[in-house]
Write a protein that binds this DNA or RNA. Structure first.
Length: 272
DNA sequence: CTGGGGATGGGGCCC
DNA sequence: AGGGCCCCATCCCCA
């Protein structure tokens, strides 16, 4: 089951272009077979994640919260616009309220409330007891037995706490998942070279390779090497006669899902 | 137009 | 619980 693509659409339209043409000349063969991605020692210092709430402006197109969640003013997007990151090099100063410059996310405890939803109506409560009281008073069994799905819904499901993102309408069943998601809003990992911000340290590491030219993932079949394992995987498909992604109608195979999608979109099979 | 490379995003899993 | 990594996916660009 695909995972990430289900929620990505918010961000897809405005990707900055970070192409570095000089990288092509540095695609040297690396004799090691599929080493783990590692950064040179010199990069260890740049892996620090810096809080940059001001970059949050790029998320303007994110839907407003649909739920009455608590929003800390300090975490709100800055109205000042993008900040000159080059002038604020290594923040990790500890006075940031968000995450203190650490890699884990801001959510201060008082801003992350699990919400309990009534399965019979759309009301939400910040405590289980409040929900129970609501259900007892408003949805007695005799009152809700005629609800369409009342019998099929388990009590556990209805009272499972959910954690809402205060920046968008997404909700999660675990605090960890929510924290991970919030990073996509706060983008705490900033490239010291260009100021580009990322949600996770390893994304930043991959990005830094675009500056350093490091390509730790080498193809065993040719001399190419890649900075990203996924790109190597896609490349390996080009060495295969039978590609991984096959058109269901014409049996033609493709090395990438996107190519298959293009193929389908072009009307190869549907046009007939 | 097509195929491929580069860059990036995000949920889930593992440690 | 949190960080790192895996895997999958997408978009852009170029040959």
């Amino acid at each position: 089951m695909p995972r990430s693509f289900l929620v990505k659409k918010y961000f897809t339209n405005k990707k900055p272009c970070y192409r570095e043409s000089h990288l092509d000349s540095q695609a040297a063969f690396i004799p090691e077979s599929f080493p783990r991605a590692e950064l040179p020692n010199q990069d260890s210092s740049v892996l620090t994640c810096y809080p940059v709430t001001s970059l949050f402006n790029s998320m303007d197109n994110i839907p407003l919260p649909l739920f009455p969640v608590t929003v800390s003013p300090s975490l709100s997007p800055s109205p000042m616009g993008p900040v000159d990151l080059s002038s604020s090099p290594s923040c990790s100063s500890g006075d940031e309220e968000d995450d203190g410059g650490r890699t884990s996310d801001p959510p201060s405890p008082d801003t992350l409330h699990p919400m309990y939803h009534c399965m019979h109506c759309s009301k939400s409560y910040s405590s289980l007891s409040a929900l129970s009281h609501h259900q007892m008073s408003q949805h007695q069994p005799s009152q809700c037995s005629d609800l369409p799905h009342a019998s099929s819904l388990s009590h556990e499901v209805s009272t499972r706490p959910t954690f809402h993102c205060k920046h968008c309408s997404k909700e999660y069943t675990s605090l960890g998942a929510l924290k991970m998601h919030i990073r996509s809003h706060t983008l705490p990992c900033v490239c010291p070279t260009c100021g580009k911000a990322f949600s996770r340290p390893w994304l930043l590491r991959g990005h830094i390779r675009t500056h350093t030219g490091e390509r730790p993932f080498a193809c065993q079949h040719c001399n190419r090497a890649f900075a990203d394992r996924s790109n190597l995987r896609a490349h390996l498909q080009t060495h295969s006669e039978v590609k991984k992604y096959q058109c269901g109608s014409c049996s033609r195979t493709f090395s990438r899902m996107s190519l298959l999608h293009k193929h389908n979109a072009s009307g190869c099979c549907s046009a007939h």
